[in-house]
Lab assay of single mutants.
Amino acid sequence: PKDEAKKKVKEAIKRGDEETAKRIAKKYNLDWDDAKREADEER
């Protein structure tokens, strides 16, 4: 599900692992900028 994928993307971003985050986002066709902004807001 997309929500689960987005959570994984945000967790990867918070760990500083943007490569993984981008790969997950691409795989699930998520909006990378959107997920990154959300992760930054939660930090």
Rank of each mutant, 00 (worst) to 15 (best):
Ile24His: 01
Gly16Lys: 03
Asp17Met: 04
Glu38Asn: 05
Asp33Ile: 09
Glu41Met: 13
Glu18Lys: 05
Lys26Ala: 15
Glu19Ile: 09
Glu4Pro: 03
Thr20Ile: 07
Leu30Asn: 00
Lys10Pro: 01
Lys10Arg: 11
Lys7Ser: 09
Arg43Pro: 11
Trp32Val: 03
Lys2Pro: 10
Tyr28Thr: 01
Ala35Gly: 03
Thr20Lys: 08
Glu4Thr: 09
Leu30Trp: 05
Asp31His: 05
Glu18Tyr: 15
Lys10Gly: 04
Glu11Tyr: 04
Tyr28Leu: 02
Ile13Pro: 00
Arg15Trp: 06
Lys36Met: 11
Pro1Trp: 14
Asn29Trp: 04
Glu18Leu: 15
Ala35Ile: 15
Ile24Gly: 00
Asp34Leu: 10
Lys36Cys: 07
Asp34Lys: 09
Arg15Met: 11
Ala35Glu: 08
Lys27Phe: 14
Glu41Tyr: 11
Ile13Gly: 00
Asp40Leu: 13
Asp33Thr: 09
Leu30Arg: 00
Thr20Met: 13
Tyr28Met: 03
Glu42Trp: 06
Gly16Met: 02
Glu11Lys: 03
Ala12Ile: 03
Val9Gln: 00
Arg15Ile: 06
Arg23Phe: 10
Glu19Trp: 07
Ala5Gly: 08
Asp3Ala: 12
Thr20Gln: 10
Gly16Ala: 03
Lys6Ser: 06
Asp33Phe: 09
Lys6Ala: 09
Ala25Phe: 00
Arg43Asn: 13
Ile13His: 01
Trp32His: 02
Asp33Leu: 12
Ala25Arg: 00
Asn29Arg: 03
Asp17Gly: 01
Tyr28Ala: 04
Arg37Leu: 09
Asp31Arg: 02
Lys14Gly: 08
Asn29Gln: 09
Pro1Asn: 15
Ile13Val: 03
Glu19Asn: 06
Glu4Arg: 11
Arg37Met: 08
Ala5Lys: 03
Lys22Gln: 08
Pro1Ala: 14
Asp17Arg: 03
Lys2Gly: 08
Lys6Glu: 04
Glu11Asp: 13
Ala25Lys: 01
Ala35Lys: 02
Arg23Gln: 13
Lys6Thr: 06
Asp3Val: 09
Glu42Ile: 07
Glu41Val: 07
Arg23Asn: 11
Lys10Ala: 11
Ala25His: 00
Ala12Gln: 03
Arg15Asn: 11
Ala25Asp: 01
Lys14Tyr: 11
Glu18Arg: 06
Arg43Trp: 12
Ala12Tyr: 13
Asn29Leu: 06
Ala12Arg: 01
Glu4Trp: 15
Ala39Trp: 09
Arg37Ala: 10
Glu11His: 04
Gly16Cys: 07
Lys6Asp: 03
Ala21Arg: 00
Lys22Ala: 04
Glu4Asp: 12
Lys2Arg: 14
Asp34His: 06
Glu42Gly: 08
Asp3Gly: 09
Asn29Cys: 09
Thr20Glu: 15
Asp3Thr: 12
Thr20Cys: 10
Ala39Tyr: 12
Asn29Glu: 09
Glu4Leu: 13
Lys36Pro: 03
Ile24Tyr: 03
Arg43Asp: 13
Asn29Ser: 09
Asp3Gln: 11
Asp40Asn: 11
